[in-house]
Structure formats: C-alpha cells, structure tokens
C-alpha cells in the first residue's frame, strides 16, 4: 500500500492519482458546495420551507461560504505543493482530437484515455467556470448598489439558472463516484492500482516512470 504522502509517488502496483493537496482541496470544496446548496434551498424556495434559522443568518452563511469557495482551489494551485494540481489542470486543458470526438459521440468512440476522460475534464471545466460565474453574480446581488436594475436582473437570472444546472451536475458527479469505487477510493486514499490505470487511463499509465507491464 502506498503511503499517503504526496511526495512519494506510489509502490510498484499502485499509482498516485490525487496527492494530499488535491484531496484536501477537493473535500474542502465539496464541504463548501454542500453548505451553499443546503443554505440555497430555503433562500430560493422560501415560500415552501419554514426556515430553521432566521433568513438573515442563512444568508450570511451562504455569503461567507461563497466568498471562501475559491480559496481551496486557488491555494492548491500555488507554490511547490501545487505542482501536481497544475499538471492535472494542464491535462484538463489540453485535448486530443480523439478526446473531442469521444465527447461529441458521448463516449461511443475509441479512446486511449488520459488520466481523466473527456467527461471528467468537462466536469472540471464546468465546475471551475461556474465558481467564477456564481462568485461574480453573487457579488452583484450582494453589493448591488452600483449596478443598474437590468444588470441585477441578469445576475439573478444567471445565479439562479446556473445553480439548478450545477445541482444536476453535482448529483451526476456523486452518482458517478458511488458507482466507480476505484475512482472514489482514490479521492480518499490517493492511489489507484496499476491494473486500473492500465485499463482505464492507459495514456497516463504509459507515462509512468516505473512501468511494469500489466
């Protein structure tokens, strides 16, 4: 079994998929998203739910969770400890023609998969862009005074619509995680087996320096 230290890559039969920095950032991010969703429901469906806490308190929790939301991701990209996160962001950014084709055909085309498949890459991109947009529109709603009513309406529209979309994507993400135990385990413990990597992420597997034939 591999140690969980981010500096030690893996043993012969296990590869490090997510280092400690990435796992910490992921779970802090998940915690904040959870708090945002839990507080968003009574704020949006105020007419359907009696509030457990006063509305103003719920608003404050939602506001501060939203403001600190980017911090885990940003910190995980910085400095020496962010090296693997930055490498993985590059993986998410660079696509081969095969990957584009695979996504267009919804997975029904041959692909020698990278560390993350195109669906996982799109999930990362969508959630990342959503954080930026939700933060921006949320800030307009909170500090509304300099903005015209038309901009406020637009920000309300985008913040609300995107929250529905995000909720769907997050539910999908959780379903995928619960039905893919090896991947889920690597978000807790960091590693995947070499067999898994050779089967699911062959292009990443081929890059590994200590590369026992499967």
């Amino acid at each position: 079994m591999a140690t969980l230290d981010r500096t030690s890559s893996a043993t012969a039969d296990h590869l490090l998929r997510f280092d400690r920095v990435q796992r910490t950032a992921h779970w802090l991010n998940a915690l904040l998203f959870g708090a945002l969703i839990v507080t968003a429901i009574p704020l949006y469906f105020g007419s359907l739910f009696g509030l457990v806490l006063p509305r103003h308190t719920v608003e404050q929790i939602h506001l501060y969770c939203g403001l600190v939301l980017p911090i885990p991701v940003v910190v995980s990209l910085l400095g020496q400890w962010g090296a693997q996160m930055r490498r993985d962001i590059r993986r998410v950014s660079f696509w081969t023609r095969d990957e584009v084709h695979w996504l267009r055909r919804l997975g029904r085309s041959p692909l020698r998969a990278d560390k993350f498949n195109p669906g996982q890459k799109m999930n990362t991109i969508f959630v990342g862009a959503s954080i930026v947009v939700m933060l921006g529109t949320g800030a307009i709603l909170k500090w509304f005074q300099p903005f015209s009513i038309s901009i406020r309406e637009g920000a309300t529209f985008v913040h609300d619509s995107l929250s529905f979309l995000l909720a769907l994507v997050i539910v999908g993400h959780i379903i995928m995680a619960l039905t893919h135990r090896d991947e889920l385990r690597s978000m807790f413990l960091g590693t995947v087996s070499a067999q898994w990597a050779a089967r699911v992420a062959p292009r990443w597997f081929a890059e590994q320096p200590h590369d026992p034939a499967p």
Partner: peptide, 25 residues
C-alpha cells in the same frame, strides 16, 4: 495535435455567464 480545448471551454462558459448577466433580464 493537442489543443487547448479546456481553456477555450472554460473561457467560453465564463463568457456565457457574462452574456447572461447582460441580457438575462
């Protein structure tokens, strides 16, 4: 050749958000 599809998609989505604020009302 690999292309920066991811960066383009990211910026495109953020741009869509800005557009939504402009015309959302």
């Amino acid at each position: 050749p690999v292309r920066r599809v991811g960066r383009r998609a990211f910026l495109g989505l953020v741009g869509l958000g800005v557009l939504g604020v402009a015309v959302g009302g």
